[in-house]
């Protein structure tokens, strides 16, 4: 852990895992949807999030994150009222998502364009989070580093395409993970990089046949728009 994992985050209490981590989960889902504040959000609380979430403000924290707030935003306690003003409909359910980390939530979002996103993420402690499922595919990324998410058909050559475009753009790959539902089905690449992926590189990727979605989540500056918002499999 670095020095500022020990000191910080600056956050609205009471719990780094159940409050600050929940804000970050909501924020990540908003950024992955990529259309600003969602129109509707169905939020499922699992495990300890379900058991003690209300007392820790987990529900309000998730909604605050969906509204784009940071962990230190003084409006987190009143996020429900702000969601109402913004026209974001929120519904809550409690259900144990078996096999998941104790502090886990599932967020199903619908954006203004009708685009949908389903995400399961866990709060690991100290405000750190991990996305473990995206649109039905198992994944694993934290958003601590700039992260490129490429959705593609599961066929030969796409790793070469993506690594080639990143190399040409001068972007070093820190980590690379591949996931798919079945051979020849839908696949997703999660690539953590050491710096921001240039917009031209994203456009180049979007133009490649077989690549159905390109999403870039910067560690600092929020999220760039998704050009081809084709959904990957809903299992």
């Amino acid at each position: 852990m670095n020095l500022f994992d020990i000191l910080g985050p600056v956050m609205v209490g009471p719990s780094s895992s159940h409050t600050a981590g929940a804000v970050r989960i909501g924020r990540m889902a908003r950024r992955l949807l990529g259309e600003g504040t969602p129109q509707a959000a169905k939020i499922t609380l699992s495990g300890s999030f379900a058991a003690t979430g209300q007392g820790h403000g987990t529900d309000r924290a998730l909604v605050a994150g969906l509204l784009g707030m940071q962990t230190d935003d003084a409006r987190i306690p009143v996020s429900f009222a702000i969601a109402k003003e913004c026209g974001m409909r929120c519904t809550f359910a409690r259900k144990n998502l078996s096999g998941e980390h104790p502090n886990t939530a599932k967020l199903e979002l619908t954006g203004k364009s009708g685009k949908s996103l389903s995400m399961i993420a866990s709060s690991l402690g100290g405000g750190r989070i991990m996305v473990v499922e995206m649109n039905g595919l198992r994944v694993s990324f934290s958003g601590d580093l700039p992260t490129l998410i490429v959705q593609n058909r599961d066929q030969p050559g796409h790793v070469r395409d993506v690594s080639g475009v990143l190399a040409a753009g001068g972007v070093n790959i820190a980590t690379l993970h591949l996931y798919r539902d079945y051979p020849g089905g839908s696949a997703v690449m999660i690539i953590e990089t050491d710096k921001t992926v240039p917009e031209e590189s994203l456009d180049t990727l979007r133009a490649i046949r077989g690549i159905t979605g390109v999403t870039f989540v910067s560690a600092e500056t929020g999220m760039m728009p998704v050009a081809s918002p084709t959904k990957i499999s809903e299992s």
Partner: peptide
Amino acid sequence: CMKCIVAAPTA
């Protein structure tokens, strides 16, 4: 009471 604090090391 959900005011802003600094975790050191935890909330």
